[in-house]
Design a protein around this nucleic acid. Structure first.
Lengths: 238, 238
DNA sequence: GCGGCTCACATTGTTAACAATCGACTGTCT
DNA sequence: AGACAGTCGATTGTTAACAATGTGAGCCGC
C-alpha cells in the first residue's frame, strides 16, 4: 500500500511498473485473503500449501508471512506452526484506546497547518465514505473509513506516526471485516462521520477531542458487543 | 529481548535453553552491532558477507534483516542493497514528539493502578540508572534509561502500546549510542530522572505531564544539537 | 572531449532439497 | 486400566545452487 501511495505521489500517469519482488505480491494477496475472511481467524497456515497455492517457493512466502507477523495479523511459534491471530475483546479495547491517543496527537500536529488542500481532502474522503454507506456496500465503506482516518495521519507528514497507524490499521480492518461478515451491517452511520469532519475543520480543538473520544467509544463498544455475541454463540455451538 | 523476558517470567533458574532458531540470534547480534556502532549509520550490508560472518546461510540472515527493517534500523531497496538507516534531525523530532504522547498515555493507563510493586520497580530502575551514571558507564546508562521508561510501558499491560514502544526504542537507542560514541557523555543527568520518578509517584497528573514534556524537550534538544554538530562537521570534512 | 552503448560484475531474489523439531499415535509394561 | 517410551508423520528451519536485476567501467562513435 505504501507502494501505491509512493507511485501516486510521484505521478501515477505512467502506468505503474510491476517492480517485481514476489514477496510484496504474496503479502498483499495473503493480507487480502485474511481480511476477506477466506482464511478464518485462528486458522493455521501451512507454508507448503500456501506456497503451492501462490505458485512460488517457500522462501518468498516465508518472508511475506514474516511481514504479516510484524503487522500483527499472524502469530508464529517456532517449529510448530503459524496461525491467523484470534479475535479478543482485550485487543479491541487496546486498539481503540490507542486510536484516541494517536488521532488526537495527529490533529495536534496538523491543527495550525490545516490548509485548503487538507480541508478538501478530508471532505472528499468523507463524501466517498457516505457514498459507500448509502450504496450499502460494506466492504467498500470499511476501506473508505480507513482512508478517511488515514488521511489525517498522512497529512501530518509524521512518518513515525503514519508507521504506527499502519501497524494498527491491519488489525482494525480484521475486526471490522469479521463484524461485516457476521452481521452484514457495521460501523457508525453517516452522521457520525459528518460530525467528526465538522469538528476537524472547526476552530474548537477541545470539541474535536471529545468528538474523537466519543467516536472511538461508540466504535469500540459496537465492536466489543459483536465479539461478545460471537463468543457466546461459539460456546453455545460447542 | 522478548525472549529474555519470557524466559524470566517462566523462571530463569534453569539455565535458558538455546531455543534454536538462528534468526533470533542473528537479529540480536546484528542489532547489537548496529547499536554498538560496529556498523556505521548509512553503511551498506551485504548479505553474503554477513552470512559468512555469522556462519549461517543467507536464508535465516535475510529473515533477520527483514526484522531489523521492520524495526526501522535498516532500509532496503529491491535488487540494489540494504543500508543502516541514516541519522536525521527530523526523525529525532518525530521520535521525541511521539514519546511525549505515548508516555503520557501510558501513565493515563496505569495511573489509578499504581501499586506497591509498580512503585518499587520504578524506584529500583531509577536507582540502577543513577548508579550507572555515577559510575560514568555511558553504555550501561543508555540501557538503564531505556529500561526505566520501558518499565512504565510494561506495567500498563497494554500489549499494543508496548509493541509501539518496542518499535521506537531501537531507533532511540541508535541515536543515543551515536551520541555517546561521539561525545562520550550523554543524556540528562541524574536529577532529571529523580524529578521524573518523583512526579510519576505523586498524585499530581498534570505535573507529571509537564515534567514528561520538559524531560523530552531537554532530551530532544540535546540529541538534535549533537546531530547538527555532526552534520556541520561532516560538511567541513568534505 | 563527450554522449550513449555494451558488457561484466556485484548483489539481491528465488528455488528445491535436506535437516531439525514437535505432536500424536501406538504398543508395551506395570 | 493407566502410564510411559518409542516411533511416525507433519511442519518448520536451514542450506547451497540458480536466476534476475541493478550498477559501473570500459569502449565506440561522433
Amino acid at each position: 500500500m505504501s507502494e501505491g501511495a509512493k507511485a501516486k505521489a510521484a505521478g501515477s500517469v505512467l502506468g505503474r511498473v510491476p517492480k517485481s519482488t514476489f514477496r510484496a505480491h504474496i503479502a498483499e494477496g495473503l493480507r487480502a485473503a485474511i481480511l476477506n475472511g477466506d482464511i478464518e481467524p485462528g486458522a493455521q497456515l501451512v507454508e507448503t500449501a500456501l506456497a503451492d497455492q501462490f505458485g512460488v517457493s517457500r522462501g518468498p512466502l516465508r518472508e511475506a508471512m514474516r511481514q504479516l507477523i510484524d503487522e500483527g495479523l499472524l502469530v508464529a511459534v517456532p517449529y510448530t506452526g503459524t496461525h491467523v491471530v484470534g479475535l479478543s475483546v482485550d485487543d479491541v479495547r487496546e486498539i481503540y484506546s490507542m486510536r484516541v491517543t494517536l488521532e488526537i496527537f495527529a490533529f495536534e500536529q496538523i491543527w495550525a497547518r490545516r490548509d485548503q488542500s487538507f480541508r478538501q481532502g478530508l471532505v472528499a474522503r468523507r463524501d466517498a465514505l457516505t457514498a459507500c454507506i448509502d450504496a450499502e456496500d460494506d466492504a467498500a465503506s470499511i476501506v473508505a473509513e480507513l482512508q478517511l482516518h488515514g488521511f489525517v495521519y498522512e497529512a501530518t507528514g509524521h512518518k513515525l506516526l503514519l508507521r504506527t497507524w499502519d501497524s494498527i490499521r491491519g488489525r482494525l480492518q480484521l475486526y471490522w471485516a469479521a463484524h461485516h461478515r457476521a452481521h452484514g451491517i457495521r460501523g457508525p452511520r453517516r452522521d457520525g462521520h459528518d460530525r467528526y469532519v465538522e469538528m476537524a475543520l472547526s476552530d474548537d480543538f477541545d470539541a474535536l477531542k471529545s468528538e474523537i473520544t466519543d467516536h472511538m467509544a461508540r466504535g469500540g463498544r459496537q465492536t466489543e458487543d459483536f465479539l461478545r455475541g460471537r463468543e457466546a454463540r461459539a460456546v453455545q455451538g460447542l
